[in-house]
Amino acid sequence: MISADAITATLPVDDGEVAIRLRGVANRFGDHTIHEGLDLDVLRGETVGVVGGSGTGKSVLLRAIIGLRAPSSGSVRVLGLDPWSADPREVATLRGRWGVMFQDGALFSALTVRENVMVPLKEQTDMGPCLLREIADLKISMAGLPASAGDLLPSELSGGMRKRAALARALALDPEILFLDEPTAGLDPITAGRFDALVNELKSTLGLTVYLITHDLDTLRDACDRIIVLADRRVTAAGPLDYVREHAEGWLADYFRGPRGRAALG
């Protein structure tokens, strides 16, 4: 069994043990190449934090994995399934098994928080209105929001509450993988710390695989099993925080050894 302190981007394990497997992924915008020959394995049940400087394509890679922007070439496997499959059933199955939280929440602004959480439940299951409401309230509460927040519109929420509401929606179908895009960006340190703790708690109780993009060194330290570093169009380093930090070069060295890095990591 490969432990979660592996220090390579690819791991010699069966498809059944990996949650995300990328092979030779390339992303191009016209002549501009973002990724080339990118390989990555994410084990089931681990939390990986993806870091990289601006323009290294963290969001582009995420969009390729969750089926929003097709990679120019290469293969993407999530839970052994292809999010770019031609078979709509395969894609639909996959969509029920992951939850995505976008950077600014991407809540439907016309719907209340409860209705937002009910959207995936309503669309994908046959639950009656009472059960829908109960399950939605359960998720809202699990995401750390007070029960009264269910009746509010997204525009009436603070930034931190909006992120929690988005997390509640991402958790609606009890996903196996949670994708979080900058979950703590724009939050005050205390709220951000609580969010990290919440992700940890959900991960340990629900056995989630978490793929999160972040710049927040505290999140990397507190919530991530492994760090994935994107640079030079591919994964240049992978491993536990201490390992990646010791072997950091270039941008990464500045990132860890700058004043903020020292303050966060000591």
Partner: peptide
């Protein structure tokens, strides 16, 4: 509640 707007092909089968 059966959703009538989703075409049958995209109907979500239970993951397992």
């Amino acid at each position: 509640m059966t959703d009538t707007t989703t075409p049958p092909a995209a109907e979500m089968p239970p993951p397992v």
